[in-house]
Protein backbone atom coordinates (compact mmCIF):
# COMPACT_ATOMS: atom_id res chain seq x y z
CA UNK A 1 0.00 0.00 0.00
CA UNK A 2 1.25 3.46 -0.89
CA UNK A 3 1.99 5.61 2.13
CA UNK A 4 -0.65 8.15 3.08
CA UNK A 5 -0.55 11.32 5.13
CA UNK A 6 -2.81 14.08 6.31
CA UNK A 7 -1.73 17.49 5.03
CA UNK A 8 -2.89 20.58 6.89
CA UNK A 9 -2.44 23.83 4.99
CA UNK A 10 -3.14 26.48 7.60
CA UNK A 11 -3.07 29.21 4.96
CA UNK A 12 -6.23 27.76 3.46
CA UNK A 13 -7.98 27.49 6.80
CA UNK A 14 -10.71 30.06 7.39
CA UNK A 15 -11.12 29.12 11.02
CA UNK A 16 -14.64 27.72 10.80
CA UNK A 17 -13.92 24.85 13.22
CA UNK A 18 -15.96 22.28 11.32
CA UNK A 19 -12.99 19.97 11.91
CA UNK A 20 -13.58 20.18 15.65
CA UNK A 21 -17.27 19.44 15.40
CA UNK A 22 -16.92 16.62 12.88
CA UNK A 23 -14.27 15.03 15.10
CA UNK A 24 -16.55 15.12 18.12
CA UNK A 25 -19.39 13.84 16.03
CA UNK A 26 -17.57 10.89 14.49
CA UNK A 27 -15.74 9.92 17.65
CA UNK A 28 -18.75 10.65 19.84
CA UNK A 29 -16.79 12.77 22.28
CA UNK A 30 -18.47 14.81 24.99
CA UNK A 31 -18.42 18.59 24.91
CA UNK A 32 -16.22 20.55 27.30
CA UNK A 33 -17.32 24.06 28.12
CA UNK A 34 -14.18 25.90 29.14
CA UNK A 35 -13.85 29.30 30.77
CA UNK A 36 -13.51 32.34 28.55
CA UNK A 37 -9.98 32.42 27.17
CA UNK A 38 -9.99 35.99 25.92
CA UNK A 39 -9.88 35.01 22.28
CA UNK A 40 -11.87 32.99 19.75
CA UNK A 41 -10.10 29.85 20.92
CA UNK A 42 -12.55 27.54 22.63
CA UNK A 43 -10.18 25.16 24.37
CA UNK A 44 -6.81 26.08 25.78
CA UNK A 45 -5.29 22.95 24.34
CA UNK A 46 -6.05 19.47 23.11
CA UNK A 47 -7.70 17.36 25.78
CA UNK A 48 -8.67 13.74 26.14
CA UNK A 49 -12.15 14.58 24.88
CA UNK A 50 -11.26 17.32 22.43
CA UNK A 51 -8.82 15.75 20.02
CA UNK A 52 -8.36 18.72 17.83
CA UNK A 53 -8.42 22.38 18.74
CA UNK A 54 -8.30 25.25 16.35
CA UNK A 55 -5.77 27.72 17.69
CA UNK A 56 -6.15 31.45 17.06
CA UNK A 57 -3.11 33.65 17.11
CA UNK A 58 -2.99 37.38 16.42
CA UNK A 59 0.23 39.02 15.40
CA UNK A 60 1.31 42.20 13.68
CA UNK A 61 3.07 41.78 10.36
CA UNK A 62 6.28 43.59 9.50
CA UNK A 63 4.43 45.59 6.84
CA UNK A 64 2.08 46.97 9.50
CA UNK A 65 -0.72 44.59 8.65
CA UNK A 66 -2.21 41.99 10.90
CA UNK A 67 -2.24 38.23 10.75
CA UNK A 68 -4.81 36.14 12.49
CA UNK A 69 -3.27 32.73 12.27
CA UNK A 70 -5.39 29.62 12.59
CA UNK A 71 -4.11 26.12 13.11
CA UNK A 72 -5.97 22.86 13.27
CA UNK A 73 -3.92 21.32 16.04
CA UNK A 74 -4.16 17.63 16.77
CA UNK A 75 -1.89 14.62 17.10
CA UNK A 76 0.85 14.70 14.46
CA UNK A 77 1.27 10.93 14.36
CA UNK A 78 5.06 11.03 14.61
CA UNK A 79 6.99 8.35 12.79
CA UNK A 80 9.15 8.03 15.89
CA UNK A 81 6.46 8.68 18.41
CA UNK A 82 7.47 9.64 21.92
CA UNK A 83 4.17 8.37 23.27
CA UNK A 84 4.71 5.00 21.70
CA UNK A 85 8.18 4.77 23.15
CA UNK A 86 7.03 5.96 26.54
CA UNK A 87 4.29 3.43 26.92
CA UNK A 88 5.38 0.82 29.45
CA UNK A 89 2.58 -1.47 28.35
CA UNK A 90 3.31 -1.24 24.62
CA UNK A 91 -0.29 -0.12 24.20
CA UNK A 92 0.59 2.49 21.59
CA UNK A 93 1.49 1.44 18.09
CA UNK A 94 1.55 2.47 14.44
CA UNK A 95 -1.13 1.23 12.08
CA UNK A 96 -0.66 0.31 8.44
CA UNK A 97 -1.82 3.88 7.64
CA UNK A 98 1.01 5.39 9.63
CA UNK A 99 -1.38 6.63 12.30
CA UNK A 100 -0.45 6.19 15.93
CA UNK A 101 -3.18 4.57 17.98
CA UNK A 102 -3.78 3.51 21.56
CA UNK A 103 -4.93 -0.02 22.31
CA UNK A 104 -7.54 0.74 24.93
CA UNK A 105 -7.54 -2.81 26.26
CA UNK A 106 -3.85 -2.67 27.05
CA UNK A 107 -3.62 0.93 28.17
CA UNK A 108 -3.49 1.19 31.96
CA UNK A 109 -3.79 4.95 32.10
CA UNK A 110 -0.35 5.53 33.60
CA UNK A 111 0.03 8.78 31.67
CA UNK A 112 3.68 8.32 30.72
CA UNK A 113 2.71 9.04 27.11
CA UNK A 114 1.08 12.31 28.19
CA UNK A 115 4.36 13.46 29.70
CA UNK A 116 6.40 12.19 26.79
CA UNK A 117 4.46 13.86 23.96
CA UNK A 118 6.19 17.04 22.90
CA UNK A 119 3.03 18.30 21.19
CA UNK A 120 0.55 18.00 24.08
CA UNK A 121 -1.53 15.80 21.82
CA UNK A 122 -2.31 12.86 24.07
CA UNK A 123 -4.19 13.04 27.34
CA UNK A 124 -5.85 10.89 29.94
CA UNK A 125 -9.59 10.54 29.98
CA UNK A 126 -11.34 9.42 33.12
CA UNK A 127 -14.27 7.06 32.82
CA UNK A 128 -16.50 5.32 35.28
CA UNK A 129 -17.17 1.62 34.92
CA UNK A 130 -20.49 -0.01 35.62
CA UNK A 131 -19.57 -0.49 39.26
CA UNK A 132 -19.03 3.22 39.61
CA UNK A 133 -15.27 2.86 39.74
CA UNK A 134 -13.11 5.36 37.92
CA UNK A 135 -10.50 4.32 35.42
CA UNK A 136 -8.28 6.14 32.94
CA UNK A 137 -7.27 5.65 29.33
CA UNK A 138 -4.95 7.64 27.12
CA UNK A 139 -6.96 9.35 24.35
CA UNK A 140 -6.03 11.25 21.27
CA UNK A 141 -6.71 11.71 17.58
CA UNK A 142 -6.61 8.38 15.79
CA UNK A 143 -6.49 10.08 12.39
CA UNK A 144 -9.84 8.27 12.13
CA UNK A 145 -8.13 4.95 11.58
CA UNK A 146 -11.54 3.32 11.79
CA UNK A 147 -12.67 5.42 8.84
CA UNK A 148 -9.47 4.77 6.91
CA UNK A 149 -10.05 1.07 7.31
CA UNK A 150 -13.39 1.53 5.56
CA UNK A 151 -11.82 3.53 2.74
CA UNK A 152 -13.12 6.84 4.07
CA UNK A 153 -11.18 10.00 4.86
CA UNK A 154 -10.61 11.30 8.37
CA UNK A 155 -13.74 13.14 9.56
CA UNK A 156 -11.91 16.48 9.76
CA UNK A 157 -10.69 16.18 6.16
CA UNK A 158 -14.20 15.35 4.99
CA UNK A 159 -15.64 18.34 6.80
CA UNK A 160 -13.01 20.80 5.63
CA UNK A 161 -14.54 22.75 2.77
CA UNK A 162 -11.49 24.82 1.83
CA UNK A 163 -9.16 21.87 1.40
CA UNK A 164 -7.03 23.05 4.32
CA UNK A 165 -7.11 19.48 5.60
CA UNK A 166 -6.58 16.79 2.97
CA UNK A 167 -5.70 13.14 3.26
CA UNK A 168 -4.02 11.11 0.56
CA UNK A 169 -0.89 9.79 -1.10
CA UNK A 170 2.20 10.91 0.77
CA UNK A 171 4.46 11.68 -2.19
CA UNK A 172 1.73 13.50 -4.06
CA UNK A 173 0.73 15.62 -1.11
CA UNK A 174 4.30 16.45 -0.14
CA UNK A 175 5.08 17.65 -3.63
CA UNK A 176 1.85 19.65 -3.77
CA UNK A 177 2.88 21.16 -0.46
CA UNK A 178 6.14 22.36 -2.01
CA UNK A 179 4.23 24.00 -4.85
CA UNK A 180 1.83 25.64 -2.44
CA UNK A 181 4.72 26.90 -0.33
CA UNK A 182 6.20 28.68 -3.32
CA UNK A 183 2.80 30.25 -3.98
CA UNK A 184 2.31 31.66 -0.49
CA UNK A 185 5.85 32.84 0.23
CA UNK A 186 5.04 36.36 -0.85
CA UNK A 187 2.15 36.67 1.56
CA UNK A 188 3.82 34.62 4.31
CA UNK A 189 7.63 35.00 4.06
CA UNK A 190 8.21 32.65 7.00
CA UNK A 191 5.96 29.94 5.63
CA UNK A 192 7.36 26.45 5.93
CA UNK A 193 6.51 22.81 5.71
CA UNK A 194 6.49 21.23 9.12
CA UNK A 195 7.45 17.59 8.87
CA UNK A 196 10.19 17.35 11.51
CA UNK A 197 12.95 15.00 10.45
CA UNK A 198 14.33 14.64 13.97
CA UNK A 199 11.47 12.22 14.54
CA UNK A 200 11.63 10.86 10.99
CA UNK A 201 8.70 13.01 9.92
CA UNK A 202 5.06 12.96 10.97
CA UNK A 203 1.97 11.47 9.41
CA UNK A 204 0.18 14.80 9.75
CA UNK A 205 2.25 17.32 7.85
CA UNK A 206 1.66 21.05 8.10
CA UNK A 207 2.10 23.97 5.80
CA UNK A 208 2.59 26.71 8.38
CA UNK A 209 2.24 30.41 7.67
CA UNK A 210 4.92 31.29 10.18
CA UNK A 211 7.72 29.73 12.19
CA UNK A 212 6.73 26.67 14.21
CA UNK A 213 7.39 28.65 17.39
CA UNK A 214 4.49 30.98 16.54
CA UNK A 215 2.19 28.00 16.73
CA UNK A 216 3.79 26.62 19.89
CA UNK A 217 5.42 23.80 17.97
CA UNK A 218 8.97 22.69 18.77
CA UNK A 219 11.37 23.91 16.08
CA UNK A 220 13.18 20.63 15.68
CA UNK A 221 11.79 17.89 17.88
CA UNK A 222 14.01 14.86 18.38
CA UNK A 223 13.60 11.50 20.00
CA UNK A 224 14.69 12.35 23.54
CA UNK A 225 17.94 10.77 24.73
CA UNK A 226 16.15 10.06 27.98
CA UNK A 227 13.67 7.93 26.08
CA UNK A 228 16.41 6.02 24.33
CA UNK A 229 18.23 5.48 27.61
CA UNK A 230 15.06 4.34 29.22
CA UNK A 231 13.36 2.16 26.64
CA UNK A 232 16.38 0.86 24.75
CA UNK A 233 18.76 0.37 27.65
CA UNK A 234 17.41 0.85 31.16
CA UNK A 235 14.32 -1.29 30.80
CA UNK A 236 15.94 -4.24 29.02
CA UNK A 237 18.92 -4.08 31.34
CA UNK A 238 16.67 -3.70 34.35
CA UNK A 239 14.69 -6.73 33.32
CA UNK A 240 17.94 -8.56 32.67
CA UNK A 241 19.21 -7.57 36.08
CA UNK A 242 16.08 -8.78 37.74
CA UNK A 243 16.52 -12.03 35.89
CA UNK A 244 20.21 -12.24 36.65
CA UNK A 245 19.69 -11.57 40.34
CA UNK A 246 16.97 -14.13 40.50
CA UNK A 247 19.12 -16.63 38.64
CA UNK A 248 22.03 -15.87 40.95
CA UNK A 249 19.87 -16.48 43.99
CA UNK A 250 18.52 -19.71 42.61
CA UNK A 251 22.02 -20.71 41.54
CA UNK A 252 23.35 -19.88 44.97
CA UNK A 253 20.66 -21.92 46.65
CA UNK A 254 21.32 -24.95 44.52
CA UNK A 255 25.11 -24.63 44.65
CA UNK A 256 25.12 -24.10 48.42
CA UNK A 257 23.09 -27.20 48.95
CA UNK A 258 25.24 -29.21 46.57
CA UNK A 259 28.46 -27.95 48.14
CA UNK A 260 27.05 -28.56 51.60
CA UNK A 261 26.63 -32.24 50.78
CA UNK A 262 30.12 -32.45 49.29
CA UNK A 263 31.84 -30.74 52.19
CA UNK A 264 29.64 -31.80 55.06
CA UNK A 265 32.65 -32.31 57.32
CA UNK A 266 33.68 -28.73 56.85
CA UNK A 267 30.17 -27.40 57.49
CA UNK A 268 31.20 -25.43 60.54
CA UNK A 269 33.30 -23.16 58.46
CA UNK A 270 30.28 -21.91 56.63
CA UNK A 271 29.17 -18.38 57.33
CA UNK A 272 25.66 -19.50 57.42
Amino acid sequence: MAETIKLVDVTKCDGCRACMVSCKNWNDLPSEMEDFHGSYQSHEKITANTWNVLTFNEQERKDGGLDWLFRHSSCLHCTEAACEKACPENAISHTEFGSVVVDYDTCVGCGYCVQACGFDAINLATYVDKNGKEFRKAQKCTQCTDRLEEGLQPACATACHTGAIVYGDKDELLSSAEDRLAQIKERYPNANIYNPQGISGTNTVYILADKPKTYGLPENPKVALSQIVWKDYAQPIGKMMLGATTMAVIGSFIATNLNKKNHSSEGDQSHE
Binding site: S226, Q227, W230, A234, I237, G238, M241, L242, T245
Partner: peptide, 15 residues
Protein backbone atom coordinates in the same frame (compact mmCIF):
# COMPACT_ATOMS: atom_id res chain seq x y z
CA UNK B 1 11.57 12.88 30.60
CA UNK B 2 14.70 11.87 32.51
CA UNK B 3 12.69 10.90 35.57
CA UNK B 4 11.27 7.90 33.75
CA UNK B 5 14.57 6.19 32.94
CA UNK B 6 15.91 7.11 36.39
CA UNK B 7 12.96 5.50 38.11
CA UNK B 8 13.34 2.51 35.89
CA UNK B 9 17.05 2.13 36.45
CA UNK B 10 16.57 2.80 40.14
CA UNK B 11 14.04 0.02 40.32
CA UNK B 12 16.32 -2.41 38.50
CA UNK B 13 19.17 -1.71 40.85
CA UNK B 14 17.05 -1.59 43.97
CA UNK B 15 15.33 -4.84 43.14
Amino acid sequence: MWAYPMHSIGLGLAA
